[in-house]
Each structure stands twice: as structure tokens, then as C-alpha cells.
Amino acid sequence: MTKAIPAAMDSRDPRASRAAGQGFTAFEGVTDGSMVDSDGNPDFAVIQQSPEFQELRRRLRRFVFPMSALFLAWYLTYVLFAAYAHDFMSQKVGGQVNVGIVFGLLEFVSTVIITLVYARYAKRRLDPQRDLVRSRAGVVEE
């Protein structure tokens, strides 16, 4: 379970507690400012503008958008071939197994690869940055 607490109580980060004491004066210098409002709730507008969050969002989008475009394009290629290139797909490559079956199975393989790559990327590049933003925003992990 996680909850937000006022940064003033976050003894790990003295800068945050100082900034919290000053209310909203530290709005511009986001990294040094508080990401928690006066009621102790996360201040989402401030977090959204913080460089840490922007970096996290950039890392996320840089991966998921191109990758989504890639797998959709690859899938549509397969579908178009299956619909319009019957002769090509019907060529035998070994015994009764034809190009179409191999192409379809390659879609399975690409799905497995993309899943593995994303899980690894998320673990290495997204989760640590996410934890950084969360701790800056005063979220205590249990």
C-alpha cells in the first residue's frame, strides 16, 4: 500500500522539507521544489512539469509508440500477404509446411520477443525512474 505524506515529514530529503515550508514559492525550480501541496497530497501539476517526470514520460513514449507502430505494421504486412499474395504464401518450404504457416509462426516469435524486450526495458529504464519520481513526490513505498 502506498500513500502520499507531506514532504516535510520526509527526512530523507532535507531540500523538500525546506521547500514545503515555503508553500508554493519554489514553483519554478521544480527539482528543488515540493511536489506536495499544503494538504499533503501530491501536487500533480508540479510533478507533471518536473524534469524527472518529463524524463520518465519521454522514456516511456520513446519505447511504446515506435514499438506499437512496428508490431502493427508487421501484423498488417502478414494480413495483407495472407489476403492478396496467395501464391507466395502457398509456396512449400519443407514438406507440407508453406510460407504462410512460417509467416504466421514468425508473428508468434515477434510477439514473444517484443514482450521480453519491453519487460526488460521497463525493469531497467522505467521502474527506477518511476521510483525516483515517486520518492520525490513523497510517496512512501511499503
Binding site: 500513500k3 501530491p42 517526470f53
Partner: peptide, 20 residues
């Protein structure tokens, strides 16, 4: 709604505020 948009985006990506 810009304020809610900030809240939703931050929440969606970081999970802040979405404890059980």
C-alpha cells in the same frame, strides 16, 4: 481540464495517488 489532465497523466505513468 488541465488540472485533471496533469493528475491523470502523472497517475497513469507513475501510479502516484493510486494506492489501493
Amino acid at each position: 481540464d488541465g488540472r485533471k489532465q496533469a493528475e491523470m497523466e502523472v497517475r497513469a505513468i507513475t501510479g502516484i495517488g493510486s494506492g489501493r
